Computed example of a mutant assay.
Amino acid sequence: MAGKPLLSINDMSIVFTSPDEPDIEAVRQVDLTLTPGKTLALVGESGCGKSVTARAVLRLLDKNADIRTGEIVYEAEGGAVDVVRLKPDSLAMRAIRGAQISMIFQEPMSSLSPVHTIGNQIDEIIVLHERLTQKQARERTVSLLDQVGIPGARERANAYPFELSGGLRQRAMIAMALACTPKLLIADEPTTALDVTTQAQILDLLRQLQDDFGMAMLFITHDLGVVAEVADDIAVMYLGDVVEQGDVFEVFKAPKHPYTQALMSSVPRLQRKSERTRLTPIKGTVPSPKDRPVGCAFTSRCPHAFAPCPTIRPERTPVSEGHVARCHLLTHTKEEALA
Protein backbone atom coordinates (compact mmCIF):
# COMPACT_ATOMS: atom_id res chain seq x y z
CA MET A 1 0.00 0.00 0.00
CA ALA A 2 1.50 3.31 -1.09
CA GLY A 3 1.37 6.51 0.90
CA LYS A 4 1.32 7.28 4.59
CA PRO A 5 -1.30 5.23 6.48
CA LEU A 6 -4.33 7.12 7.72
CA LEU A 7 -5.29 4.33 10.14
CA SER A 8 -3.31 1.30 11.30
CA ILE A 9 -4.76 -1.58 13.30
CA ASN A 10 -1.92 -3.46 14.95
CA ASP A 11 -2.20 -6.82 16.75
CA MET A 12 -5.81 -6.16 17.82
CA SER A 13 -7.71 -8.87 19.70
CA ILE A 14 -11.31 -8.44 20.86
CA VAL A 15 -12.83 -10.63 23.57
CA PHE A 16 -16.48 -10.93 24.62
CA THR A 17 -16.96 -11.61 28.30
CA SER A 18 -19.82 -13.22 30.22
CA PRO A 19 -20.21 -13.86 33.95
CA ASP A 20 -21.44 -17.40 33.26
CA GLU A 21 -19.32 -18.43 30.27
CA PRO A 22 -15.61 -18.45 29.38
CA ASP A 23 -14.34 -15.46 27.42
CA ILE A 24 -14.84 -15.68 23.65
CA GLU A 25 -12.14 -14.29 21.37
CA ALA A 26 -14.05 -12.81 18.42
CA VAL A 27 -11.08 -11.11 16.73
CA ARG A 28 -7.54 -12.42 16.99
CA GLN A 29 -4.41 -10.33 16.42
CA VAL A 30 -5.70 -8.39 13.42
CA ASP A 31 -3.38 -6.12 11.43
CA LEU A 32 -4.90 -3.75 8.85
CA THR A 33 -3.75 -0.54 7.17
CA LEU A 34 -5.90 2.10 5.47
CA THR A 35 -4.43 4.72 3.12
CA PRO A 36 -6.04 7.99 1.87
CA GLY A 37 -7.79 7.57 -1.46
CA LYS A 38 -7.64 3.76 -1.31
CA THR A 39 -10.24 1.10 -0.52
CA LEU A 40 -9.54 -1.94 1.64
CA ALA A 41 -12.16 -4.69 1.33
CA LEU A 42 -12.67 -6.86 4.41
CA VAL A 43 -14.31 -10.12 3.33
CA GLY A 44 -15.37 -13.42 4.84
CA GLU A 45 -18.38 -15.48 5.88
CA SER A 46 -21.01 -14.09 8.25
CA GLY A 47 -19.84 -14.08 11.85
CA CYS A 48 -16.13 -13.98 11.06
CA GLY A 49 -15.54 -10.68 12.88
CA LYS A 50 -15.74 -8.10 10.08
CA SER A 51 -18.33 -5.80 11.67
CA VAL A 52 -16.80 -6.16 15.13
CA THR A 53 -13.46 -5.02 13.71
CA ALA A 54 -15.10 -2.00 12.06
CA ARG A 55 -17.06 -1.01 15.16
CA ALA A 56 -13.89 -1.20 17.24
CA VAL A 57 -12.45 1.64 15.13
CA LEU A 58 -15.34 3.88 16.21
CA ARG A 59 -15.49 2.41 19.74
CA LEU A 60 -19.07 1.27 19.18
CA LEU A 61 -18.64 -2.20 20.66
CA ASP A 62 -21.08 -3.78 23.11
CA LYS A 63 -20.40 -3.27 26.80
CA ASN A 64 -19.20 -6.85 27.23
CA ALA A 65 -16.63 -6.47 24.41
CA ASP A 66 -13.06 -5.76 25.44
CA ILE A 67 -10.20 -4.77 23.12
CA ARG A 68 -7.81 -7.04 24.98
CA THR A 69 -4.60 -6.33 23.02
CA GLY A 70 -3.31 -4.10 20.24
CA GLU A 71 -3.76 -0.54 19.05
CA ILE A 72 -5.77 1.44 16.49
CA VAL A 73 -3.58 4.35 15.43
CA TYR A 74 -5.44 7.14 13.64
CA GLU A 75 -3.63 10.11 12.10
CA ALA A 76 -5.96 12.77 13.46
CA GLU A 77 -5.75 16.47 12.61
CA GLY A 78 -3.80 17.14 15.79
CA GLY A 79 -1.45 14.15 15.44
CA ALA A 80 -1.52 10.38 15.81
CA VAL A 81 -4.07 9.01 18.30
CA ASP A 82 -4.48 5.47 19.64
CA VAL A 83 -8.26 5.11 19.56
CA VAL A 84 -8.10 2.15 21.94
CA ARG A 85 -6.91 4.46 24.73
CA LEU A 86 -9.84 6.83 24.30
CA LYS A 87 -13.03 6.30 26.28
CA PRO A 88 -15.99 5.61 23.94
CA ASP A 89 -17.99 8.54 25.34
CA SER A 90 -15.06 10.98 25.68
CA LEU A 91 -15.02 14.34 23.90
CA ALA A 92 -11.90 13.28 21.99
CA MET A 93 -13.63 10.18 20.63
CA ARG A 94 -16.79 12.10 19.78
CA ALA A 95 -14.71 14.62 17.85
CA ILE A 96 -13.42 11.77 15.67
CA ARG A 97 -16.59 9.67 15.40
CA GLY A 98 -18.92 11.03 12.74
CA ALA A 99 -16.65 13.92 11.79
CA GLN A 100 -13.30 12.38 10.81
CA ILE A 101 -14.37 8.72 10.66
CA SER A 102 -17.91 7.85 9.56
CA MET A 103 -19.77 4.61 9.02
CA ILE A 104 -22.51 3.45 6.67
CA PHE A 105 -24.37 0.79 8.60
CA GLN A 106 -25.61 -2.45 7.09
CA GLU A 107 -29.36 -1.89 7.32
CA PRO A 108 -30.50 1.76 7.06
CA MET A 109 -34.06 1.03 8.21
CA SER A 110 -32.78 -0.11 11.61
CA SER A 111 -30.02 2.53 11.80
CA LEU A 112 -32.11 5.61 10.99
CA SER A 113 -34.53 6.98 13.57
CA PRO A 114 -38.11 6.24 12.46
CA VAL A 115 -39.53 9.26 14.32
CA HIS A 116 -37.25 11.94 12.86
CA THR A 117 -37.05 13.16 9.29
CA ILE A 118 -34.01 12.41 7.16
CA GLY A 119 -33.12 16.10 7.13
CA ASN A 120 -33.29 16.48 10.91
CA GLN A 121 -30.98 13.51 11.43
CA ILE A 122 -28.35 14.89 9.05
CA ASP A 123 -28.78 18.45 10.37
CA GLU A 124 -28.00 17.23 13.89
CA ILE A 125 -24.61 15.82 12.88
CA ILE A 126 -23.63 18.99 11.02
CA VAL A 127 -24.66 21.30 13.87
CA LEU A 128 -22.83 19.12 16.41
CA HIS A 129 -19.51 18.95 14.58
CA GLU A 130 -19.44 22.05 12.38
CA ARG A 131 -21.05 24.57 14.74
CA LEU A 132 -23.31 25.92 11.98
CA THR A 133 -26.74 27.46 12.44
CA GLN A 134 -29.81 25.33 11.81
CA LYS A 135 -30.45 27.14 8.54
CA GLN A 136 -26.88 26.66 7.33
CA ALA A 137 -26.99 23.00 8.33
CA ARG A 138 -30.21 22.45 6.36
CA GLU A 139 -28.67 23.98 3.25
CA ARG A 140 -25.72 21.62 3.52
CA THR A 141 -28.08 18.69 4.12
CA VAL A 142 -30.02 19.49 0.95
CA SER A 143 -26.75 19.80 -0.96
CA LEU A 144 -25.58 16.41 0.34
CA LEU A 145 -28.86 14.70 -0.53
CA ASP A 146 -28.62 16.15 -4.02
CA GLN A 147 -24.97 15.05 -4.29
CA VAL A 148 -25.81 11.42 -3.51
CA GLY A 149 -28.49 11.42 -6.21
CA ILE A 150 -31.74 11.82 -4.27
CA PRO A 151 -34.28 13.57 -6.54
CA GLY A 152 -36.20 16.49 -5.05
CA ALA A 153 -33.62 16.77 -2.26
CA ARG A 154 -35.26 19.68 -0.43
CA GLU A 155 -38.61 17.92 -0.25
CA ARG A 156 -37.03 14.53 0.58
CA ALA A 157 -35.24 16.13 3.54
CA ASN A 158 -38.65 16.41 5.21
CA ALA A 159 -39.47 12.73 4.62
CA TYR A 160 -39.30 9.99 7.25
CA PRO A 161 -37.23 6.84 6.55
CA PHE A 162 -40.31 4.65 6.01
CA GLU A 163 -41.41 6.99 3.21
CA LEU A 164 -38.29 6.23 1.14
CA SER A 165 -37.39 3.16 -0.91
CA GLY A 166 -34.47 0.95 0.12
CA GLY A 167 -32.17 2.59 -2.40
CA LEU A 168 -33.07 6.12 -1.30
CA ARG A 169 -32.63 5.20 2.38
CA GLN A 170 -29.17 3.86 1.59
CA ARG A 171 -28.32 7.08 -0.23
CA ALA A 172 -29.56 9.06 2.77
CA MET A 173 -27.27 6.98 5.01
CA ILE A 174 -24.35 7.78 2.72
CA ALA A 175 -25.22 11.49 2.84
CA MET A 176 -25.30 11.32 6.63
CA ALA A 177 -21.91 9.59 6.72
CA LEU A 178 -20.42 12.28 4.45
CA ALA A 179 -21.98 15.21 6.32
CA CYS A 180 -18.66 16.38 7.79
CA THR A 181 -16.37 15.29 4.94
CA PRO A 182 -14.69 12.40 6.80
CA LYS A 183 -11.16 11.21 6.07
CA LEU A 184 -12.19 7.57 6.53
CA LEU A 185 -15.49 5.99 5.50
CA ILE A 186 -16.45 2.55 6.83
CA ALA A 187 -19.09 0.88 4.66
CA ASP A 188 -20.55 -2.19 6.37
CA GLU A 189 -22.22 -4.28 3.64
CA PRO A 190 -23.88 -1.16 2.16
CA THR A 191 -25.45 -3.01 -0.79
CA THR A 192 -26.59 -6.29 0.78
CA ALA A 193 -30.34 -5.55 0.87
CA LEU A 194 -30.50 -3.82 -2.52
CA ASP A 195 -31.47 -5.12 -5.95
CA VAL A 196 -28.73 -5.53 -8.56
CA THR A 197 -29.46 -2.26 -10.38
CA THR A 198 -29.54 -0.17 -7.21
CA GLN A 199 -26.43 -1.98 -5.96
CA ALA A 200 -24.51 -0.93 -9.07
CA GLN A 201 -25.68 2.67 -8.63
CA ILE A 202 -24.56 2.75 -4.98
CA LEU A 203 -21.12 1.31 -5.85
CA ASP A 204 -20.66 3.90 -8.61
CA LEU A 205 -21.71 6.60 -6.16
CA LEU A 206 -19.22 5.49 -3.51
CA ARG A 207 -16.39 5.42 -6.05
CA GLN A 208 -17.27 8.90 -7.28
CA LEU A 209 -17.54 10.32 -3.77
CA GLN A 210 -14.21 8.77 -2.83
CA ASP A 211 -12.60 10.49 -5.79
CA ASP A 212 -14.26 13.78 -4.85
CA PHE A 213 -13.29 13.70 -1.18
CA GLY A 214 -10.04 11.67 -1.32
CA MET A 215 -11.26 9.42 1.50
CA ALA A 216 -9.85 6.13 2.65
CA MET A 217 -12.58 3.48 2.69
CA LEU A 218 -13.00 0.22 4.60
CA PHE A 219 -15.53 -1.79 2.61
CA ILE A 220 -17.01 -4.78 4.42
CA THR A 221 -18.71 -7.45 2.31
CA HIS A 222 -19.03 -11.17 1.64
CA ASP A 223 -19.54 -10.61 -2.10
CA LEU A 224 -16.29 -11.16 -4.00
CA GLY A 225 -17.84 -9.73 -7.16
CA VAL A 226 -18.32 -6.40 -5.38
CA VAL A 227 -14.72 -6.53 -4.10
CA ALA A 228 -13.38 -6.77 -7.64
CA GLU A 229 -15.25 -3.57 -8.54
CA VAL A 230 -14.42 -1.29 -5.62
CA ALA A 231 -11.28 -2.43 -3.79
CA ASP A 232 -7.58 -1.71 -4.14
CA ASP A 233 -6.58 -4.15 -1.40
CA ILE A 234 -8.29 -7.09 0.28
CA ALA A 235 -8.14 -8.74 3.69
CA VAL A 236 -9.79 -12.17 4.07
CA MET A 237 -11.13 -13.03 7.54
CA TYR A 238 -12.06 -16.41 8.95
CA LEU A 239 -13.23 -16.96 12.53
CA GLY A 240 -11.67 -13.68 13.69
CA ASP A 241 -8.34 -14.24 11.91
CA VAL A 242 -7.10 -12.28 8.90
CA VAL A 243 -5.77 -15.28 6.96
CA GLU A 244 -4.66 -13.46 3.80
CA GLN A 245 -4.29 -9.88 2.61
CA GLY A 246 -2.73 -7.95 -0.23
CA ASP A 247 -3.40 -6.24 -3.55
CA VAL A 248 -6.85 -7.30 -4.72
CA PHE A 249 -5.75 -8.35 -8.21
CA GLU A 250 -2.78 -10.35 -6.94
CA VAL A 251 -4.84 -12.15 -4.29
CA PHE A 252 -7.58 -12.92 -6.83
CA LYS A 253 -5.05 -14.13 -9.39
CA ALA A 254 -2.99 -16.26 -7.01
CA PRO A 255 -4.71 -16.87 -3.65
CA LYS A 256 -2.39 -18.66 -1.25
CA HIS A 257 -4.54 -19.54 1.76
CA PRO A 258 -6.86 -22.57 1.32
CA TYR A 259 -9.80 -20.53 2.63
CA THR A 260 -9.29 -17.80 0.04
CA GLN A 261 -8.95 -20.47 -2.63
CA ALA A 262 -12.19 -22.08 -1.44
CA LEU A 263 -14.04 -18.76 -1.54
CA MET A 264 -12.84 -18.14 -5.09
CA SER A 265 -13.90 -21.66 -6.17
CA SER A 266 -17.40 -21.20 -4.76
CA VAL A 267 -18.16 -18.07 -6.84
CA PRO A 268 -20.67 -18.77 -9.69
CA ARG A 269 -19.28 -18.19 -13.19
CA LEU A 270 -20.96 -17.78 -16.56
CA GLN A 271 -20.07 -20.77 -18.72
CA ARG A 272 -21.09 -22.36 -21.97
CA LYS A 273 -23.74 -25.03 -21.69
CA SER A 274 -21.23 -27.75 -22.58
CA GLU A 275 -18.83 -26.51 -19.86
CA ARG A 276 -21.30 -26.30 -16.98
CA THR A 277 -20.04 -27.66 -13.69
CA ARG A 278 -21.45 -27.79 -10.18
CA LEU A 279 -20.39 -25.15 -7.67
CA THR A 280 -17.70 -26.23 -5.24
CA PRO A 281 -19.00 -25.50 -1.72
CA ILE A 282 -16.73 -25.21 1.29
CA LYS A 283 -17.24 -28.43 3.20
CA GLY A 284 -18.25 -28.37 6.85
CA THR A 285 -19.35 -25.39 8.93
CA VAL A 286 -17.60 -22.56 10.71
CA PRO A 287 -16.70 -23.73 14.25
CA SER A 288 -18.14 -21.87 17.19
CA PRO A 289 -15.76 -19.24 18.61
CA LYS A 290 -16.01 -21.27 21.83
CA ASP A 291 -14.35 -24.19 20.02
CA ARG A 292 -11.72 -22.25 18.12
CA PRO A 293 -8.74 -24.42 17.14
CA VAL A 294 -5.52 -23.54 18.92
CA GLY A 295 -3.67 -23.46 15.60
CA CYS A 296 -5.06 -22.45 12.20
CA ALA A 297 -8.72 -21.41 12.43
CA PHE A 298 -9.53 -23.13 9.12
CA THR A 299 -8.11 -26.53 10.15
CA SER A 300 -11.41 -28.41 10.47
CA ARG A 301 -12.51 -27.51 6.91
CA CYS A 302 -9.18 -27.40 5.11
CA PRO A 303 -8.50 -30.18 2.55
CA HIS A 304 -4.75 -29.61 2.98
CA ALA A 305 -4.56 -29.68 6.80
CA PHE A 306 -1.58 -31.59 8.17
CA ALA A 307 0.36 -32.14 11.39
CA PRO A 308 1.04 -28.60 12.70
CA CYS A 309 -2.29 -27.06 11.65
CA PRO A 310 -4.49 -27.95 14.69
CA THR A 311 -1.93 -27.03 17.34
CA ILE A 312 0.39 -24.32 15.97
CA ARG A 313 -0.89 -20.99 14.69
CA PRO A 314 0.71 -20.05 11.34
CA GLU A 315 2.78 -16.86 11.19
CA ARG A 316 2.08 -14.02 8.78
CA THR A 317 4.21 -15.16 5.85
CA PRO A 318 5.15 -12.79 2.99
CA VAL A 319 4.14 -14.09 -0.43
CA SER A 320 5.28 -11.01 -2.35
CA GLU A 321 5.52 -7.29 -1.62
CA GLY A 322 2.40 -6.38 0.36
CA HIS A 323 0.87 -9.86 0.02
CA VAL A 324 0.86 -12.02 3.17
CA ALA A 325 -0.97 -15.14 4.33
CA ARG A 326 -1.20 -17.29 7.47
CA CYS A 327 -0.69 -20.87 6.26
CA HIS A 328 1.78 -23.60 7.20
CA LEU A 329 1.94 -24.68 3.55
CA LEU A 330 3.90 -21.50 2.81
CA THR A 331 6.70 -22.51 5.18
CA HIS A 332 6.47 -26.33 5.39
CA THR A 333 5.58 -29.26 3.21
CA LYS A 334 3.52 -32.17 4.49
CA GLU A 335 6.56 -34.39 3.99
CA GLU A 336 8.69 -32.14 6.24
CA ALA A 337 6.02 -32.15 8.95
CA LEU A 338 5.80 -35.94 8.94
CA ALA A 339 9.57 -36.48 8.91
Rank of each mutant, 00 (worst) to 15 (best):
L145H: 05
L145V: 00
L145I: 04
D146R: 05
D146M: 04
D146H: 10
D146Y: 01
Q147E: 13
Q147T: 04
Q147R: 13
Q147M: 14
Q147H: 00
Q147I: 02
V148H: 07
G149Q: 02
G149A: 07
G149R: 11
G149W: 04
G149P: 01
I150Y: 01
I150S: 01
I150E: 10
I150Q: 08
I150A: 09
I150G: 02
P151Y: 00
P151Q: 06
P151D: 11
G152W: 04
G152A: 09
G152H: 11
G152R: 08
G152T: 08
G152Q: 12
G152F: 04
G152Y: 11
A153Q: 06
A153C: 07
A153F: 08
A153M: 06
A153I: 03
R154S: 15
R154H: 14
R154V: 15
R154L: 15
R154F: 14
R154K: 15
R154I: 15
R154D: 15
E155D: 14
E155Q: 14
E155N: 11
E155L: 14
R156G: 15
R156K: 15
R156H: 15
A157L: 02
A157K: 10
A157V: 05
A157M: 06
A157C: 00
A157S: 10
N158R: 12
N158M: 12
N158T: 13
N158K: 14
N158G: 11
A159F: 04
A159C: 11
A159I: 06
Y160G: 12
Y160S: 12
Y160R: 13
Y160P: 12
Y160N: 12
Y160Q: 13
P161C: 12
P161D: 13
P161I: 14
P161Q: 13
F162S: 13
F162N: 14
F162G: 09
F162K: 11
F162T: 04
F162A: 13
E163A: 07
L164N: 00
L164T: 05
L164F: 00
S165Y: 03
S165T: 00
S165H: 05
S165F: 03
S165Q: 09
S165L: 01
G166L: 04
G166M: 09
G166Y: 07
G167M: 02
G167W: 11
G167V: 09
G167T: 07
L168P: 11
L168T: 10
L168G: 06
L168D: 05
L168F: 14
L168H: 11
R169C: 14
R169S: 09
R169L: 12
R169V: 07
Q170M: 08
Q170W: 03
Q170C: 05
Q170G: 07
R171D: 01
R171Q: 00
A172P: 07
A172C: 11
A172I: 12
A172L: 10
A172Y: 00
A172G: 07
A172F: 03
M173Y: 03
M173K: 04
I174H: 02
I174W: 00
I174R: 02
I174K: 04
I174Y: 10
I174C: 10
I174F: 04
A175D: 09
A175K: 05
A175G: 00
A175S: 10
A175Q: 08
M176E: 09
M176H: 02
M176P: 10
M176I: 14
M176F: 06
M176G: 04
A177F: 05
A177M: 05
A177R: 02
L178N: 02
L178S: 03
L178C: 09
L178H: 00
L178P: 06
L178Q: 03
